[in-house]
């Protein structure tokens, strides 16, 4: 199970059992609901802002270990970032995920998302890892001005 082991790093298994920042809070400045049509997994991501800076990300949803862990990692990474920074981190994460294993997520910019690096070799699972990040991106795009 070496391949599966590289996909499911200890952190991922741990976060899927003990998620962070899960559960929506009233008063979000932006939010987005995303569905993975192949498996029906769903996630809602909320952005709580202080002006131009992310104060908190809250999320809720149902899905596989990868998508659940990915949501927790995003929620821990985002606070303190400006909206522009968050957007560029999402783009960086996407590049790593689409790289088919060639690009490791940059730890300095993406924090615990390095633990998701193994996902990019499993094209069928990239959508799982991306789902919460796509939701955050969509929330950014549709943020009430």
């Amino acid at each position: 199970m070496s391949g599966t082991g590289s996909l499911y790093q200890e952190l991922i298994l741990d976060l899927s059992r003990h998620p962070r920042a899960k559960g929506l809070h009233d008063g979000a400045d932006a939010s987005s609901h995303q569905v993975n049509p192949t498996c029906g997994d769903e996630v809602t991501v909320q952005l709580h802002l202080d002006g131009d800076v992310v104060r908190a990300v809250r999320w809720d949803g149902e899905g596989c270990a990868i998508s659940q862990a990915s949501a927790s990692i995003l929620a821990e990474l985002a606070p303190g970032l400006t909206l522009d920074d968050l957007g560029s981190r999402i783009a960086l994460f996407r590049t790593a995920m689409r790289s088919k294993g060639r690009i490791e997520p940059d730890e300095e910019l993406l924090g615990d998302a390095v633990a998701l690096g193994g996902v990019s070799k499993y094209t069928a699972r990239v959508k799982c890892a991306m789902l919460p990040w796509v939701a955050a991106e969509d929330a950014l795009a549709h943020r009430a001005a």
Binding site: T4, L7, Y8, C64, Q68, C128
Partner: peptide, 13 residues
């Protein structure tokens, strides 16, 4: 407590 995608991943392996 385990999502089908995760089960399928181990089976695929």
């Amino acid at each position: 407590g385990v999502h089908a995608h995760d089960v399928g991943q181990v089976l695929d392996e």
